[in-house]
Amino acid sequence: MRRINFLISPVLILFLLTNCSKDNDTATDTTYPEIDNTASDAFPKQCSIIKRGETFTFRTLLTDNSELGSVSVDIHHNFDHHTHSTEVDDCGMDPIKKAVKPFLMIRDFPIPAGSKSYQLNTEINVPADIDPGDYHFMIRLTDKQGWQTIKGLSVKIQ
């Protein structure tokens, strides 16, 4: 009997320790911010088509449970198929090709301090002389605590 107690006691101790350690840290935020481009007027979406020499409106909803940080957009070519998007759908890639004058845009968009939700609505101009083809439209969103959500969309520039 004593021996059985010995075997059970560690399990009990472990159980107690697990329960003791639960409480006090509810204060820290561990939630990632969200990039929501499911709305019907959100743009771009996975596999969207963007025209050269035109301006399009980048529209997406950014939310966080406590406070948004900053948002960054990086449009770069994927002619070499180096990476894939974070999304499920495959958009049917053009054949691999060499970049001559690919479009590159790295930009941030201000988010008012203290926002839990922000509707991004901004115009982006695509020059007419850039290489058409497969591009990645990467959105990086942080919250105040430093959690970052990445959405990598595959788009085509024609």
Partner: peptide
């Protein structure tokens, strides 16, 4: 190494 809320361009 503190992950901040900022991006650097």
């Amino acid at each position: 190494l503190n992950p901040t809320a900022y991006h650097d361009y």
